[in-house]
């Protein structure tokens, strides 16, 4: 189990975060001060530090700087009330790995934690699931419900990229570099054509996910729950 160090001076908020992440499968140690956090890190090892910035005994950024100066590479996720124009860059420049402005929801925080722990929820699953669509990365097979859908290898690659980032827009460039790096030149039209074929194939198999084109930017695969209509 992943051990997370939570440094937050508001007890009510800290309790809510701890309980929320606990339900997501993380083990949390909570400290209210920089001093307490430093002490805790001397005793035990943590996989991730969740850090508030305005703390009673100093600025959380100082802890980030101090940890990086000691060559401590533990991932740090700053969760703060500071949402100014330069705050995010300042936090990342200090050596933090991610920056989340309050208020946030637990699923989002958990997703970011997983990303930082290099254990993105989907990535390590044997089979990728979104809606009624599933993809087995090892076998390169696609199922809608229980029915196997015969899919061209390039479309499987494409679907895998979109499934791994479902709910997010995947830029065309990222798809290109992920899929066709070994291949010869690939035209945008070829990608659009592949997407189009994949859409038809999924919809013919009555899949409930949607692949959206964000014109000029990229593509996104949305789970049915994302659709309000």
């Amino acid at each position: 189990m992943m051990r997370l160090l939570l440094v937050e001076d508001n007890p009510r908020l800290a309790t809510l975060i701890r309980d929320g992440l606990d339900r997501q499968g993380f083990a949390i140690d909570w400290y209210e001060t920089i001093e307490g956090a430093q002490h805790a890190m001397q005793i035990g090892d943590y996989d991730l530090v969740l850090l508030d910035l305005g703390l009673p005994d100093g600025d959380g950024l100082d802890l980030v700087t101090a940890m990086r100066a000691q060559m401590d590479q533990t991932p740090i996720l700053i969760m703060t009330a500071r949402g100014g124009l330069d705050d995010r860059v300042a936090g990342l420049d200090a050596g933090a790995d991610d920056y989340l402005v309050k208020p946030f929801q637990i699923p989002e925080l958990a997703a970011r934690c997983r990303a930082l722990l290099r254990r993105p929820g989907h990535a390590l699953e044997a089979v990728l699931h979104v809606g009624n669509v599933s993809l087995n990365p090892a076998e390169r097979t696609v199922h809608v419900g229980d029915i196997a859908v015969d899919t061209a290898p390039r479309e499987v690659d494409l679907l895998e990229v979109l499934l791994r980032r479902s709910g997010h827009v995947v830029a065309k460039q990222s798809i290109e570099s992920a899929l066709y790096s070994m291949d010869a030149e690939i035209t945008p039209n070829a990608m659009e054509a592949s997407i189009s074929r994949l859409r038809k194939r999924l919809s013919a198999a009555s899949a409930d996910v949607q692949i959206k084109t964000i014109h000029g930017v990229g593509y996104a695969l949305y789970a049915p729950s994302n659709v309000t209509e």
Partner: peptide, 13 residues
């Protein structure tokens, strides 16, 4: 922002 966070997470529950 802090009270808003508390409210957000409380409502989630």
């Amino acid at each position: 922002r802090t009270p808003l966070s508390i409210m957000q997470l409380s409502i989630d529950q």
